Simulated scan of single mutants.
Amino acid sequence: MSERDDEEREFDIKWADGAEHKEPSARARMLAARWKDNPPGPVPFRPDPAHRGSSGRSSWVSTAVVLGCVVAVIVLLGYIDFRPY
């Protein structure tokens, strides 16, 4: 592409972005038509902190428990391998 084509393309993008009326996408039109008669219920972006888990522990505690179990298995396997018969 020549430099002239790049300038014309940039002009077209600026012209399109500056339009007063922008047509919604096909998906937006489809959802608007669907929700006109049957609107969706509210859906929170993130759950309430009270509903995070049964115990409310943070994720680092779970990570520590998993890593502790892995270390215990490694130590147990090492003990079994070095045990005299």
Score class of each variant (00 low, 15 high):
residue 1 M to T: 09
residue 3 E to W: 00
residue 5 D to A: 04
residue 5 D to N: 01
residue 7 E to T: 09
residue 8 E to Y: 03
residue 8 E to D: 07
residue 9 R to T: 02
residue 9 R to N: 01
residue 9 R to M: 01
residue 10 E to N: 08
residue 10 E to L: 08
residue 12 D to N: 01
residue 14 K to H: 14
residue 14 K to A: 12
residue 14 K to R: 14
residue 15 W to C: 05
residue 15 W to S: 01
residue 17 D to G: 10
residue 17 D to R: 02
residue 17 D to A: 11
residue 18 G to L: 08
residue 18 G to D: 04
residue 19 A to P: 01
residue 19 A to T: 06
residue 19 A to H: 08
residue 20 E to V: 06
residue 20 E to M: 02
residue 21 H to E: 14
residue 21 H to K: 11
residue 22 K to S: 05
residue 22 K to Q: 14
residue 23 E to A: 00
residue 23 E to H: 00
residue 24 P to T: 10
residue 25 S to V: 11
residue 26 A to G: 11
residue 26 A to I: 07
residue 26 A to Q: 03
residue 26 A to N: 07
residue 27 R to L: 15
residue 28 A to Y: 02
residue 28 A to W: 11
residue 28 A to I: 06
residue 29 R to P: 00
residue 30 M to F: 06
residue 31 L to V: 05
residue 32 A to F: 06
residue 32 A to N: 13
residue 33 A to T: 10
residue 33 A to K: 13
residue 33 A to F: 08
residue 34 R to P: 09
residue 35 W to P: 00
residue 35 W to R: 12
residue 36 K to Y: 12
residue 37 D to N: 01
residue 38 N to L: 06
residue 38 N to D: 00
residue 38 N to I: 01
residue 39 P to S: 01
residue 40 P to C: 00
residue 41 G to H: 08
residue 41 G to K: 12
residue 42 P to Y: 15
residue 42 P to R: 10
residue 43 V to D: 05
residue 44 P to Y: 00
residue 45 F to M: 08
residue 46 R to V: 05
residue 47 P to Y: 02
residue 47 P to M: 06
residue 47 P to R: 10
residue 48 D to T: 02
residue 48 D to A: 09
residue 48 D to R: 03
residue 48 D to L: 07
residue 49 P to K: 10
residue 49 P to M: 04
residue 50 A to T: 11
residue 51 H to D: 13
residue 52 R to A: 15
residue 53 G to D: 12
residue 53 G to M: 10
residue 54 S to A: 15
residue 56 G to E: 06
residue 56 G to H: 10
residue 57 R to T: 07
residue 57 R to D: 13
residue 58 S to P: 09
residue 60 W to F: 10
residue 60 W to N: 13
residue 61 V to L: 15
residue 61 V to Y: 14
residue 61 V to C: 11
residue 62 S to P: 03
residue 62 S to D: 09
residue 63 T to S: 11
residue 65 V to M: 03
residue 65 V to P: 08
residue 66 V to G: 00
residue 66 V to R: 04
residue 66 V to S: 05
residue 66 V to M: 05
residue 67 L to N: 15
residue 69 C to E: 05
residue 69 C to P: 06
residue 69 C to N: 09
residue 70 V to M: 12
residue 70 V to L: 14
residue 70 V to H: 08
residue 72 A to K: 10
residue 72 A to N: 14
residue 73 V to N: 08
residue 74 I to Q: 04
residue 74 I to V: 14
residue 75 V to G: 03
residue 76 L to D: 12
residue 76 L to E: 13
residue 76 L to S: 09
residue 77 L to P: 04
residue 78 G to R: 09
residue 78 G to K: 07
residue 78 G to C: 14
residue 79 Y to P: 05
residue 81 D to I: 03
